[in-house]
Amino acid sequence: MRFSVTTVSTPEWTPEEAAAAIAAQGWDGIEWRVTDQEPADEPGYWAGNRATWPLTGLEESVPEILRITNEAGLDFSAIGAYVQASDHDNIERLLAATAALGAGSVRIGVPHVPVADYRAVFAATRADLEWVVERAAVHGVKVLVELHHGTIISSASAAYRLVEGLDPERIGVIHDIGNQVIEGFEDIGTAFQILGEYLAHIHVKNAVWWPNGQQGPDAQVMWEHNWSTLRDGQIDIDWLFRALVSIGYDGWVALEDFTDLSTPRDERLLDSLQFLHGSYQRALMWAEWVAAEAAEADAVEEVQTEGPDVEA
């Protein structure tokens, strides 16, 4: 398993600063954010993010992206874009840039909800993805769609319906457990079974719900969600890694960190990396224990089946 950082998580840093810091900490890769964003007086995750490459004219940025990534000694875990599957011109731009970078895969967007007619939007998106997959094959890359709250594929079940029957070599699903704290949660092991060969990438973050102090009708408690550190969220990250190890997943796990803490960014990223390595190692030890228990049970069953070797 390999670990990377999405640069949506590093809004204060320039691309050079982000790549250098991520590499120095021992991360394996980087997932560059690509979008035309709004300007901002202060850097933020979604606007004014300094570690974001513009979508418009992306092809002109390819040499610089390659230089910065290679000089840092990092690999591409993916390209993190937001272009809707229906935007064919920009999808073509993304696919060509991903191929030129040798990045392997690129995330694209799907429609948000609510929509006037969910089934019609779902069907139209599926038709767009059929075209996208054809173009991805021409460019020799893979497109990724993400389990995300507020979209037409917040759950593994919905995502599987969207991609079922398409070439899994050219399209896959990003499982994001943090997003599913908010909407779309299904048992992690079950979700992986549902996605099957379409499970292509992992985003990891955590989140929490808490009473916001407001009251609804008849004194109903109102709740809000927010992002948290990996340690403090509602999802047991060890559970995620046990499920990944159990299916033999050996791909990328990319960190997304949207928390607003006073701790410096580099300290937060390093703590996350150490936590992820620890969780992965605990999952490997758990798998060894499970295998040993199964082997012992099989041995006992075999002895009991054969019975004692005693002559009548």
Rank of each mutant, 00 (worst) to 15 (best):
T190I: 07
S61T: 00
E64W: 07
I247L: 12
Q193W: 08
Q274F: 01
W46I: 04
G165C: 07
T35I: 04
G150H: 06
A103Q: 06
Y280M: 08
Y249F: 15
G251W: 10
A283K: 01
D87C: 11
E296K: 12
A96C: 05
A295N: 10
V141A: 05
L66I: 09
S279Q: 14
W210D: 11
L269N: 09
H201I: 03
T151W: 13
R161P: 03
I153G: 09
E130R: 12
A51M: 08
I188Q: 04
A158I: 07
T98M: 01
A158P: 06
D176L: 10
S9D: 07
W32F: 05
A297N: 11
A78V: 04
V221P: 11
S246H: 11
E60V: 05
T56P: 01
V133I: 08
Q214S: 09
G248A: 02
A19I: 03
E288V: 08
V143N: 06
D75H: 03
P63F: 13
W289Q: 15
E311W: 14
H203Q: 04
D271S: 12
V5R: 08
S9C: 01
E224M: 10
I247D: 12
G44W: 08
E306S: 07
V204C: 01
G80R: 01
H88R: 15
D87M: 09
V221T: 15
A294N: 10
P63W: 14
R2G: 09
S61F: 10
G196H: 11
D250H: 14
G102S: 02
R135K: 13
T151Y: 06
T259H: 00
A123K: 10
A292H: 09
D176Q: 11
E311L: 11
Q220Y: 02
P63N: 03
L95H: 11
G109D: 06
N70C: 01
L55H: 14
V141R: 02
T259R: 12
L147A: 02
L101C: 14
A20M: 05
S262P: 01
T69V: 07
A20D: 15
G178F: 10
Y82N: 14
R170Q: 06
T6K: 02
S272E: 08
R135G: 02
N179G: 07
R135P: 06
A116C: 00
G172A: 13
W210Y: 15
D187H: 06
I152M: 03
W289K: 15
A47R: 15
S155R: 04
F185Q: 07
G29M: 01
D266T: 12
P11K: 14
